[in-house]
Write a protein that binds this DNA or RNA. Structure first.
Length: 247
DNA sequence: AAAACCTCCAACCGCCAAGCG
DNA sequence: TCGCTTGGCGGTTGGAGGTTT
């Protein structure tokens, strides 16, 4: 059996009809989520498993929040993106009711261009004022096996933490290797870590300065980097987050 | 009024890792 | 160990609807 949906000429593609939605919804309600390879058969749908799964996750699942992202959601998205990079599913996991696709679309349509503009503004400012600002570039970095960056993560997990070099010319995000985050246990730990981190730190920050994380905070360019040292990319994760929160 | 252009988002595609025999 | 299947993810695309010229 092919893992792709494009091998059969009979399978339907494109927009879902209300009838198909109903069939899929009934099927998942009766049999539960999962076993997606059985769903087309059970539901009587002429769709591939991937299409069914995606439709359920992005559209039919209960408690999906639709409409514009509010300010708090955007703030949180920006923070998480800076922390996690393009790990849309992880980011969406922190935004109740939002799907990874929603987050990705919102980022691509609203924030990416905004950030790009912000960056260009900063760049222009630099040129006109001749201010000396060293632009931080993400440094490929291997983290020591013995260095425990996460209170919740065992050394066994952290020794895999090799940050990928960032090819994205638009944003300087702290990317985590997909290999690391794809592990379910690691995801749990990251989520647990984020849970506690955001609970504790946001309370603190809220009390002190409130939610003031704006786009200007993305301008990491203002932080000096000397020979790759003292860059935000060389700090342990919790310090990065603290920097993040303080900017 | 209509053509051209732009924006947004649902859906598709290709890849990867885990699980299993 | 190997190959296959499945679930899941991020990147990309197509087209509907809105806006501008």
């Amino acid at each position: 059996m092919s893992q792709n949906c494009n091998t059969s000429l009979v399978l339907r593609k494109g927009a879902w009809t209300a009838e198909e939605d109903m069939l899929l919804k009934n099927c998942v309600e009766n049999f539960g989520e999962g076993k997606w390879h059985l769903v087309p058969l059970r539901a009587g749908l002429n769709r591939c498993r991937k299409s069914c799964r995606l439709r359920w996750l992005n559209y039919l699942r209960p408690n999906i929040k639709r409409g514009d992202f509010d300010k708090d959601e955007v703030d949180l998205m920006l923070r998480l993106h800076k922390l996690l990079g393009n790990r849309w599913s992880l980011i969406a996991g922190r935004l109740p009711g939002r799907t990874a696709n929603d987050v990705k679309n919102y980022w691509n349509t609203h924030l990416r261009s905004r950030l790009k503009q912000e960056k260009e503004k900063l760049k222009d400012g630099e040129q006109s004022e001749h201010t000396m600002v060293t632009v931080i570039k993400p440094q490929p970095r291997t983290i020591s096996k013995t260095l425990n960056l996460y209170p919740h993560v065992t050394p066994h997990d952290t020794h895999n933490l090799v940050t990928s070099s960032n090819n994205d010319s638009i944003d300087n995000t702290f990317n985590i290797s997909p290999n690391v985050v794809s592990s379910p246990t690691f995801v749990d730990k990251i989520n647990g870590y984020l849970e506690e981190l955001f609970d504790n730190e946001e309370k603190k920050i809220d009390d002190e300065v409130g939610w003031s994380f704006g786009l200007e905070a993305e301008g990491l360019d203002g932080v000096k980097q000397v020979d790759g040292q003292n860059s935000v990319f060389d700090l342990p994760m919790d310090e990065v987050v603290m920097l993040d929160l303080l900017y």
